[in-house]
């Protein structure tokens, strides 16, 4: 099973500018599998991403935009991207600020589809 997850994450981390990727349990923020650069605390990233996604999901629902599917947090020195894989998991990528967001988004969606 872990080889399967690793294969899914490899397709994301192969994209130029992606620093790391991980699969996270949506509700609990626990790491299922990760492929992160050294020094990045996977557990903390997972917990934070899950918490952010839940806050965003509440807001999108309240605003009438429906159920969260994709989020992209752009910052000056990098970006955090995540796609929901059903109601159970999140596929997350951390990337450089100049990464091809469209390509990362597509690979995250493919990864999420492979998980569901």
């Amino acid at each position: 099973m872990s080889k399967r997850f690793q294969g899914i994450l490899d397709t994301i981390t192969r994209i130029r500018g992606v620093r790391g990727a991980m699969i996270v349990v949506y509700q609990d923020g626990l790491v299922v599998s990760d492929s992160l650069m050294e020094g990045v605390r996977g557990n903390a990233v997972a917990a934070l991403t899950s918490s952010l996604a839940k806050h965003v999901a509440n807001a999108t629902s309240a605003s009438g935009a429906g159920v969260l599917q994709f989020l992209h947090l752009q910052a000056i020195s990098g970006a955090l991207l995540a796609v929901t894989a059903g109601a159970e998991m999140l596929v997350v990528a951390i990337a450089d600020p100049s990464v091809n967001v469209g390509l990362v988004r597509l690979e995250l969606i493919r990864a999420a589809e492979a998980l569901t």
């Binding site: 992209h72 947090l73 752009q74 000056i76 020195s77």
Partner: peptide
């Protein structure tokens, strides 16, 4: 939450959050 995330990941100040949902962006 965004401020915590960018601080921990050392991403610098956040600029925007883009979200796609089932019925809206």
């Amino acid at each position: 939450e965004m401020e915590r995330a960018v601080r921990m990941l050392k991403l610098g100040d956040w600029q925007r959050l883009v979200v796609e949902a089932t019925d809206g962006n």
